[in-house]
Measured scan of single mutants.
Amino acid sequence: MQRVNMIMAESPGLITICLLGYLLSAECTVFLDHENANKILNRPKRYNSGKLEEFVQGNLERECMEEKCSFEEAREVFENTERTTEFWKQYVDGDQCESNPCLNGGSCKDDINSYECWCPFGFEGKNCELDVTCNIKNGRCEQFCKNSADNKVVCSCTEGYRLAENQKSCEPAVPFPCGRVSVSQTSKLTRAETVFPDVDYVNSTEAETILDNITQSTQSFNDFTRVVGGEDAKPGQFPWQVVLNGKVDAFCGGSIVNEKWIVTAAHCVETGVKITVVAGEHNIEETEHTEQKRNVIRIIPHHNYNAAINKYNHDIALLELDEPLVLNSYVTPICIADKEYTNIFLKFGSGYVSGWGRVFHKGRSALVLQYLRVPLVDRATCLRSTKFTIYNNMFCAGFHEGGRDSCQGDSGGPHVTEVEGTSFLTGIISWGEECAMKGKYGIYTKVSRYVNWIKEKTKLT
């Protein structure tokens, strides 16, 4: 034993070699072989497995989906700052455009905790909710729209109204504003409101030439003092309507412009014939205590009207009353817009006519005020429907199939267009061939041609 100890002390290297040989010859039971080890760690190889990531292109799944990435790591994937920024906006807080917040056709661009709407022409605001041009839906104005110097929408209202708090709607500024039905039992019968379409306001006024200088022999019209197929109006439903009495009662109609003036057809009036105007009328054979009678003290036909040349060209006249009318729910003026808007309103496509005229061709006159909704007829169809001249200051309205029309005794009465609950004068009943005849239409004086003249002559002093 002493000898062994001496050998170990003198030859430590020998001992180490012996131990190493023993270990190498022993069977290893701690580690699995290569094949079995792979069965336990069965993990798919990654895209760049075996390579240094710093030297390969980034992978979106590896960089940002398996674990949260930084902007720089995302930049490695896209290799483009702009594309990385677009991805980053949604990656950080989701897609803010998912709810489609942009209105009126706006395009949404996502941002971090926010979004941006790219608005089409005519709109602005956070969600493109603000109209900035009158060309689109009248700028959301209830009545009139004008573009300011910086191309912003400025709404306005006709006389007797003021802008509401929203700067879009119009509200009454006087007790009985024009064009409004205020009798409670008839307010439910107000005709369907007309909503502004998209309009090209630059070209809204037709490029028409008034044929002022045409000389033409007097034409022989049949029954051209021209509501057939209409309905009984309720008291106060058309408070701007008046009836004219002269040699015979209810020979023509008219509309209240203001307390002192009536507008009617020029062919209705004769110099030297006494005319009485009755406002607030409903049943011409009954006294309903809503009527107001006034005498006409002055007749002003349009300066281009000449019955000797043509009885229905420039067929418009103004009547001055001896005493002002007292405005109330049964006696209310009709609204008159400017030339541009009167023309736009007419193009809405349908209007209402009213009167006490004959209820059928050569038949009896109506006792109760009649009204009828009539569609506008395109000019080409209008011209083809008659052998008589249709001037540019006239328009056609009615039904091709016949059966409904204005008729004798309705002449001078109103053709009105309702705009968001307020009625505007767009025409004056003038003439036609018979009444409600198939293929024939009622012919009306186009008020847009005469609004400046009306307003100039009827100013209240």
Rank of each mutant, 00 (worst) to 15 (best):
C407R: 05
T381H: 12
C108W: 00
G125R: 02
R226E: 12
P333C: 01
N113L: 08
N36V: 08
G427N: 00
S25H: 04
A337E: 01
Y371G: 12
C97P: 02
G230R: 11
N42T: 14
S169Q: 08
D93V: 15
F121Q: 13
N151L: 10
K311N: 06
C18E: 01
L130G: 14
T81E: 14
T381W: 05
E259T: 06
C128Q: 02
G160C: 01
V195S: 13
G403T: 11
V451F: 04
N151P: 06
P120E: 06
A337S: 03
D232R: 13
N310K: 06
T190V: 12
L327M: 11
F388N: 12
S49P: 14
E193R: 07
I210S: 13
I390Y: 13
C128G: 02
F121A: 10
N113W: 04
V183E: 07
K440I: 03
Y115M: 03
E433H: 14
V77T: 13
I284H: 06
D93E: 08
V242E: 01
C117H: 02
E165C: 04
V368T: 15
R379I: 11
A308E: 13
V278G: 03
G58T: 13
T133N: 13
S107T: 11
E208Q: 08
R449E: 14
N304W: 12
G105H: 13
L52Q: 15
V331P: 00
G413I: 14
E79K: 15
I7A: 15
N306R: 10
T389V: 08
L244S: 00
I300W: 04
R62Y: 06
S148P: 09
G125S: 04
R3A: 13
L460G: 07
L163E: 02
T81S: 09
K347V: 03
V174F: 05
G122K: 04
G398E: 06
R449Y: 15
F251Y: 11
R62D: 04
E281S: 10
F388I: 14
S182G: 09
E54Q: 09
I390C: 05
D223T: 13
N138A: 11
S220E: 09
G398M: 05
A366I: 11
H302C: 02
F121M: 08
V227C: 09
M65G: 04
V174I: 09
K457L: 09
Q237T: 07
V273K: 02
M65W: 06
G351L: 01
M6Q: 08
H282G: 07
G398C: 02
F196Y: 14
D223G: 10
C97W: 01
V202F: 12
E76W: 05
Y450V: 00
V263H: 01
K440G: 13
F251D: 03
K51H: 11
S220W: 07
G106V: 02
G357A: 14
H267M: 03
T276N: 09
N393M: 03
R404L: 13
G94M: 09
S70G: 13
R373D: 03
I454V: 06
C28G: 13
Y352P: 02
S329C: 04
A366G: 12
L321E: 01
P301E: 07
D33H: 09
T271V: 05
T276A: 07
G236V: 05
G179P: 01
V153S: 15
V4C: 11
G432Q: 06
T209S: 14
C108E: 00
L372D: 14
D150P: 09
V278K: 05
E193A: 13
L211M: 13
C119L: 00
G412E: 04
E171T: 08
Y441A: 09
W356L: 11
F71H: 05
T209C: 06
